[in-house]
Amino acid sequence: MTTTRRLVLASGVFYLLTFAFSIPAFFLYEPVLTDPGYIVSDGGDDTRIILGAMFEMFTALAGIGTAVAVYPIIRRHNQAASLGFVTTRSYEAAVMIIGVIALVSIVNLRQAGTAEGTDDTAMVAVGQALVVVRDQTAIFGPGFVPALNALLFGSVLYRSRLVPRIIPALGLIGAPLLLASVLARMLGVHDQSIFAAIALAPIFFWELSIGLWMTFKGFNRSALATLGLDEREKVA
Rank of each mutant, 00 (worst) to 15 (best):
R165G: 15
Y38P: 10
L7S: 12
G37K: 12
I210G: 00
A196H: 12
A196Y: 11
G44E: 10
P72L: 08
I166V: 15
F55R: 04
D120L: 04
H190R: 14
G154F: 05
A112C: 04
V13S: 01
A20N: 00
D45M: 05
I106K: 06
L51G: 00
A102M: 12
I39W: 04
A67Q: 11
L212C: 01
T87I: 15
V156R: 08
T215Q: 02
D119K: 07
N149H: 11
D135W: 12
A122Y: 09
Q136A: 12
A196T: 13
A53D: 14
P202D: 03
F140M: 13
I167F: 04
G154V: 04
G43R: 11
R75Y: 05
I101Q: 04
Q136P: 00
I50T: 08
Y158V: 08
V131P: 07
L151W: 02
Q128R: 15
R89G: 11
G84S: 03
A93M: 05
F195H: 02
R110T: 02
I139G: 01
P72H: 09
F219N: 01
E231M: 07
Y15V: 00
N78I: 02
A112F: 14
P36D: 10
I64T: 03
A175I: 01
E92Y: 01
D46S: 12
S181G: 08
S82D: 05
P176C: 02
P202S: 05
R232E: 12
D45Y: 00
V163D: 05
T121P: 02
R76H: 08
V145K: 00
G44N: 13
A236S: 11
I64S: 02
I166Y: 15
T4Y: 05
G188V: 08
I173Y: 02
I23H: 06
S181W: 02
M57I: 14
V95Y: 00
F26Q: 13
Y38R: 12
P36C: 10
L178Y: 03
T215N: 09
S160C: 09
E30Y: 10
G143C: 11
E56Y: 14
F144P: 03
D42I: 01
I23M: 10
L162I: 10
L103M: 15
R221N: 12
V163G: 03
L179C: 03
L177P: 01
A223W: 01
L208C: 02
S22Q: 07
D191G: 11
V40N: 05
L200T: 11
P142H: 11
I23A: 11
A80N: 14
F19L: 09
A196S: 14
G37W: 08
Q136D: 09
E233I: 06
T226H: 13
G99Y: 07
E231P: 02
P72G: 06
L152H: 01
G188T: 09
G143W: 08
I139Q: 10
V132R: 14
M1R: 14
G37N: 15
F21Y: 11
L130A: 12
I167M: 09
Q136S: 08
G127V: 12
Y29P: 01
S22C: 00
I167K: 06
G44V: 08
